[in-house]
Each structure stands twice: as C-alpha cells, then as structure tokens.
Design a protein around this nucleic acid. Structure first.
Lengths: 230, 230
DNA sequence: TTCCATGATTCGTCAGATGAATTAAATCAA
DNA sequence: TTGATTTAATTCATCTGACGAATCATGGAA
C-alpha cells in the first residue's frame, strides 16, 4: 500500500522505514547524495512541517531524529490556531467530553490497582491544595486523574485528543475562570467517581462523569471562553 | 488573551486578525516592510506549515489567502502519516465510531426534512449500484449518508474527525476489502437506521448504527488493515 | 591514558539570482 | 473614446552560495 503525503520529503521518510530514534541524514546529505532532488530550502520547508507535527525532533547542530508517532501535536496546533481565530473552546471541550464518555466503560475495565492508587493520590493532593490556604488550583492532579482513566486504551488518536485538550486548557488559561466552589464540586465528583469505579459500577461512574462535565457550562461567570481578537 | 503558536509568522497571521478570503502580504513585502524580522526562506517554512494545516491557500504567482478554519487537514495529515508508519486504521475507525455514537442523539434531533431526503437518496442510489451489475461500490453515498447525519452539529472539531475518517478511508482503500454481502448488510442497516430516525426512535437508530460498525471487524477476510512497511 | 587543540559536521539564517506565471499599466491603432 | 496589444511590475518557486555557531570527531601532546 502506497500512501502519498503530498511531499517528496515526507514520502521519503516513510519510504525509508525509519524507526523511532533513528537519525535522519543531514540536510546537505539529503540534497547532495541524490536521496531527494530538491534544494536545502525546500527540504527545510517540509522538515518544519514534520517538526510541528511532532514527527521529528530537530536538535540544533546535532541532526534530526524520528520520534514515536503521536497524534497530540497536530491536534494541539490546529486547535490552538482555531482558538486564536475565535473558535470556542467549548466546541473542543464538547468533543473531549463525548470521547471520554463514550470510551468510559472500556477504559474503566482496563484500570489496574496502581491506576486506582494514582487517582486516589490525585484526590488527596487536590484536597490538600483546596483545603489549606493559600488555595492552589490542582490542575496537574486534574489532568492526571482524567488521563489515568484512559491511558490503557492504547489508542493514540483517542489519547491524542485528550492530551491536546489539557494542553489547550492550560494554554488558554481556563482555570482562571474558576472559583473555589466549582473546584470543590469537581473534586467531590472525582471522589465519587473513583469509589464507583472501585465497586465496578462503571455506568454510574460514567453518569457522574457526565454530570461533572456540566459544572463548567452552568457557571454563570464563565458562560463563554471565546477569545476576543487582538 | 494572547496565544502563542510558537512561530513569529503564525502569530503574525493571528495578530493581524485576517478574515477568511483576505489576502496576505507577499513574501517579499512581509520581510522588507518590517512586518516580520526574518528572511523569505524562514517565512516560507512557516507558510508551508500553514498551507499543510489548511489555514492558507497559496496560489502560485497570485498570492496567499486566508481560509476558513477547518480541523480536517491537520487530522488527515497526521493520521495519514500514522497509517504510513504502521498505525492501524482500526484505531482511528474506533475513534470515529465512538464520536458518531456519542453525538448520535444530538445530531438526529437537528435533522431536517431535506437531510432525511438526502439520506433517502443515498440509499436509493446505493441500492441501484448494488443490485445491477457491474457492481459499483457506493462509496460517495456511504460518506454522504453518514456526514448528513452529523453536519448540523456545527462543531468543526467533530466534523473534522468525521471528514478525515472518510478521506483516510479512501486514501487507504478500505473499500478494496469489501464484498457484496458486506455491502448489502451495511445498506440494509442504513435503511433501517433511516426509518428509525424518521419515527423518532433515535436510541434504536443509535443501536443499529453501533451494530453496523461492527460488520467490518467481524469479517474474517479483513481482520486487519495494517499496512506493511515499504 | 587523559587532556586539549584542531578541523569537520550540521543546523540556522540570510542574501541574491533566475525563471515563470499572473496582473497591472502603458502604448497604440481604429 | 474605445479596444487591443505590448510592456513592465508583481509574486511565487526554486536554487546557489555564504557565514556563523554549536557540536562532534580526530589526533597529538603531556
């Protein structure tokens, strides 16, 4: 099966069958040694695409290496651009919520004891942050809690969307619109979700998850995350 | 809110607040007139990224224009690369199936009479193709049938994933693995789904949809769409 | 063996040149 | 004035060559 990525350079990477960690020929070498029939400038244009998509890692003066495939960079970059152009964060949040909800049962069934322990740790750490002033927003815990639920799915596309969601969440600064009462409710839900999972009631846990995603939407102060244009 | 896309040129596009259809300054102009403090080569690298992401349309010798935002190109390019590197199509198909299933009810509620007529037309056209030899695979009808269900959702991220799915579907050539009996079953499901939607039984239609996505997986001949490396 | 100087490699960036296609302007005939 | 034709300017597409800076490899001296 031949796949055309619409670029001689990108097709070349594929055709060579590089593995993650492999070093690419230098840009000079690519152009000179008849690997590719194009100038260094042209190669650089495509290389920049590959870099932004997270396919390669260009280390200055040290060469280029192929990375493990990850869906996240493409989603993050495109969605970030979308946000900057006025697309609403809620559109993407809706996608993420639906994806999490629809994979919920499958994901829960794959959770190990260590995973549950990690989630428990998130809750405890978050409670500590919330209960003792000065209040810190337990963002890392929130991200880890959710990602832990789904990380065993072994689907790079699903995980890419979820990872990109949290990257956007931080880049946009959604947490700035939160108050204590919202955070307290969220983490009460998390605690409830975890115990439902522990007792095997995945469907009830799913319902609790869906309820807890509605918290943000119903807060009057943060009705919209739309960004005004510069 | 300032969003950083990690590139002076891309940030520039955002900062200027271009609307779809607007013409970008020429590359020379961008570098000369102190819009950007970088060389034309550098601009071209970023421009190529913007082009591949579907943000701009570069027309040779005529200038560059900003396009309407669309999530599809980023998803398609990244997923296509993933397929070429040996990632399974099924991973992406799984995501798409979950997204369609989880948005099903919402989408059905938004369907108009015209939409239903379009879907009916797909079924009739497909039946014609399937029942009169030589058999043609009703791919366009299949795509249109599914996309019609969801097009009113007005969520570029959701629609982007669904569009990219069909682009991949065609690029990979999934249809080559199909036989008549599979196609016949699929379109029987479609017919059933449409009448369930017509009678307002969205949940039953959803169940039929989920069943019909399982058809491919259960065919013994096409257990895997994995591509062997070049 | 260890340390250090030297040179080769490689990315990062820029400037300039050519070609080709499009677009705008100017010229000229009717 | 009008319309057609020629000319010039614009713009993308691509290549070559150059320089700097950081890294890496080599080889010689202590």
């Amino acid at each position: 099966m031949e796949i055309n990525l619409g670029s001689d350079f990108l097709n070349f990477i594929i055709r060579q069958g590089y593995q993650p960690g492999d070093r690419l020929p230098s840009i000079q070498e690519l152009t000179k040694d008849s690997h590719l029939d194009m100038s260094a400038n042209k190669v650089r244009e495509q290389l920049e695409v590959a870099r932004q998509m997270g396919w390669v890692e260009v280390r200055s003066k040290r060469g280029t290496r192929v990375k493990e495939y990850d869906f996240t960079p493409a989603v993050r970059l495109s969605a970030l651009y979308a946000m900057a152009r006025g697309e609403s964060f809620e559109s993407f949040a809706s996608l993420r919520n639906h994806v999490e909800a629809s994979y919920w049962q499958e994901a829960c069934a794959l959770l190990t004891d260590e995973d549950l322990a990690v989630m428990q740790g998130c809750i405890e750490s978050a409670d500590q942050k919330l209960d003792s002033p000065p209040i810190h927003i337990p963002n890392p815990e929130h991200r880890l809690f959710h990602m832990t639920v789904f990380k065993n799915l072994d689907n790079t596309f699903v995980l890419g969307i979820l990872e990109a969601y949290w990257d956007l969440y931080e880049a946009i600064g959604v947490n700035r619109y939160m108050d204590y009462s919202y955070l307290r409710k969220v983490w009460d839900y998390h605690s409830q979700i975890l115990s439902l999972i522990r007792s095997g009631q995945f469907e009830d846990a799913q319902r609790a998850f869906i309820d807890h995603t509605r918290l943000l939407r119903h807060e009057p102060d943060n009705a919209s995350w739309e960004l005004e244009r510069g």
